[in-house]
Amino acid sequence: MANSPQSKKRARQADVRLTVNKARRSRIRTFIRKVEEAIATGDKTAAQSALHTAQPELMRGVTKGVYHKNTAARKMSRLSARVNAIG
């Protein structure tokens, strides 16, 4: 339990960051899921457009500290490879 005023403030800030980051992570997962659903239907144009909308969201997660840079790059690489494989 936080006792000093500084530790109480840090605990409050941690709670706020947790909720904000949880919302950001959920939003990014939604965009990724839209790409995967478009891939599952086999519609290449829809998958490409979903990928182009998901990419800035994923990179925004990197700048906000939700994801590591390499994690986001790996996710984008794998998604784009799957989109390109639709043919």
Rank of each mutant, 00 (worst) to 15 (best):
residue 1 M to R: 03
residue 2 A to F: 01
residue 2 A to M: 03
residue 2 A to Q: 08
residue 3 N to W: 15
residue 3 N to G: 04
residue 3 N to P: 00
residue 4 S to V: 04
residue 4 S to D: 01
residue 5 P to Y: 01
residue 6 Q to P: 00
residue 7 S to H: 02
residue 7 S to L: 02
residue 7 S to Y: 00
residue 10 R to V: 09
residue 11 A to R: 10
residue 11 A to G: 09
residue 11 A to D: 06
residue 12 R to Y: 06
residue 13 Q to N: 12
residue 15 D to M: 02
residue 15 D to P: 00
residue 16 V to F: 00
residue 17 R to L: 14
residue 17 R to T: 04
residue 21 N to E: 13
residue 21 N to Y: 15
residue 23 A to W: 01
residue 23 A to V: 00
residue 23 A to K: 14
residue 24 R to D: 12
residue 25 R to Q: 10
residue 25 R to G: 10
residue 26 S to M: 13
residue 28 I to G: 07
residue 28 I to N: 04
residue 29 R to N: 15
residue 29 R to A: 15
residue 30 T to G: 15
residue 30 T to A: 15
residue 32 I to W: 10
residue 34 K to A: 15
residue 35 V to M: 08
residue 36 E to M: 13
residue 37 E to M: 10
residue 39 I to E: 05
residue 41 T to D: 13
residue 41 T to V: 14
residue 42 G to F: 07
residue 44 K to P: 06
residue 45 T to W: 04
residue 46 A to Q: 10
residue 47 A to M: 03
residue 47 A to E: 04
residue 48 Q to R: 14
residue 48 Q to I: 00
residue 49 S to I: 13
residue 49 S to N: 11
residue 50 A to D: 06
residue 50 A to R: 05
residue 51 L to I: 04
residue 52 H to V: 12
residue 53 T to P: 01
residue 53 T to Y: 14
residue 54 A to E: 08
residue 55 Q to H: 10
residue 56 P to W: 08
residue 56 P to C: 08
residue 57 E to W: 11
residue 57 E to F: 05
residue 58 L to S: 02
residue 59 M to Y: 08
residue 59 M to P: 01
residue 60 R to W: 09
residue 61 G to V: 07
residue 62 V to P: 04
residue 63 T to S: 12
residue 64 K to V: 08
residue 64 K to A: 12
residue 64 K to D: 08
residue 65 G to L: 03
residue 65 G to H: 03
residue 65 G to R: 04
residue 68 H to S: 06
residue 68 H to G: 03
residue 71 T to L: 13
residue 73 A to Y: 01
residue 73 A to F: 00
residue 73 A to N: 05
residue 73 A to W: 00
residue 75 K to M: 02
residue 77 S to G: 04
residue 77 S to Y: 05
residue 78 R to F: 04
residue 78 R to S: 05
residue 79 L to I: 03
residue 80 S to C: 03
residue 81 A to W: 00
residue 82 R to P: 06
residue 82 R to L: 12
residue 84 N to V: 02
residue 85 A to E: 05
residue 85 A to G: 10
residue 86 I to C: 14
residue 86 I to Q: 08
